[in-house]
């Protein structure tokens, strides 16, 4: 399993994850004349001897991808997922799996986390300890008493601050895409390669006899049983949810953003696999 990169500059590395070196690249590209400021140890003495001017070995600047995770850490992510497990766990597992894959290939992963009050940036790193730190940060951020989510603001900030071309994973939930967010995704996608991961939200309706009560993380209000068991409302709710998923999927597809939805902890790896596979096959417009 690997993260496929479509960009031409990154395409150099396609299928070559196994040849990745840590640290400076030793892949020789060409020679050029020495210019003040160049490292003396980069001078190719043999070539210089044959030539009349000092020549510098030019290396491929970097063959590492920048993998960037944008994780929504608002309190909505502290809610339960479709399976009844905490969404946080699923988000952490998804980020962990992807970051592990990336670092195994020598990529460097960084992360933006954010809610409506603050945005945090974890600088790029490639070690397992780095991934561990990242995941711990996500775990600590996502709390029931955390501020609410504001993906639009987070995406805006990331689009403004993320200079290097990167592969961007957006980890969010069953969000309702509005026009502004749409714009920010397009803006991000223009420069970077964007993949979208939705952590599926829990069903609000009570369909089983022993469905536990649920309360909204925004406002803390419990949803009355009367509403949750109303057959008519269940039908309308299901239609609304299906429509919401459809809108999100359609909009992202139109932009060429690969999207996947994870409903449970066990479903994380298969869902990621499908996402990466879909992404690999997708033709970049």
């Amino acid at each position: 399993m690997g993260i496929h990169a479509h960009r031409k500059t990154i395409e150099l590395l396609e299928g070559e994850y196994s040849s990745i070196h840590h640290g400076r690249s030793h892949d020789f590209d060409d020679l050029r004349e020495y210019a003040p400021g160049d490292e003396v140890k980069d001078i190719d003495w043999k070539a210089t001897a044959r030539s009349t001017v000092p020549l510098i070995k030019r290396y491929i600047a970097s063959r590492q991808h920048n993998i960037v995770f944008i994780v929504d850490t608002g309190r909505g992510m502290a809610a339960v997922a479709e399976s009844g497990e905490p969404k946080k766990e699923i988000a952490i597992q998804a980020v962990g799996v992807l970051a592990y894959l990336a670092t195994r290939h020598g990529d460097r992963v960084s992360m933006f986390t954010g809610d409506e009050e603050h945005i945090d940036f974890t600088p790029a790193g490639g070690s397992e300890a780095h991934i561990e730190r990242m995941l711990r940060a996500v775990d600590a951020r996502i709390q029931l008493d955390a501020p609410g989510s504001d993906m639009e603001h987070l995406l805006t900030q990331v689009a403004r601050r993320l200079g290097h071309r990167s592969i961007v994973f957006i980890v969010s939930d069953d969000i309702a895409l509005d026009r502004d967010m749409d714009k920010q995704i397009a803006r991000l996608h223009a420069r970077h390669e964007v993949l979208w991961i939705s952590v599926g939200d829990a069903d609000l309706m009570a369909r089983q006899l022993s469905a536990p009560p649920v309360w909204a993380v925004d406002g803390g209000v419990e949803i009355p049983e009367y509403l949750r068991r109303s057959r008519g409302l269940q039908t309308v709710f299901d239609e609304g949810v299906a429509q919401r998923h459809e809108i999100l999927a359609t909009r992202l597809r139109k932009k060429g953003v690969s999207a996947g939805r994870i409903g449970s902890l066990d479903g994380t790896v298969p869902a990621l696999f499908r996402l990466l596979e879909r992404h690999r096959r997708a033709r970049r417009s």
């Binding site: 069953d174 649920v214 509403l227 409302l233």
Partner: peptide, 28 residues
């Protein structure tokens, strides 16, 4: 403090934005 027994859920607007929800809520 009663939430101890219940599950926290996000995006309640999936339900509350429905027109049927408002009439059901009124009945409730």
């Amino acid at each position: 403090g009663r939430h101890g027994g219940g599950l926290p859920v996000a995006h309640v607007d999936r339900l509350t934005k429905l027109k049927a929800y408002r009439s059901a809520m009124r009945r409730y």
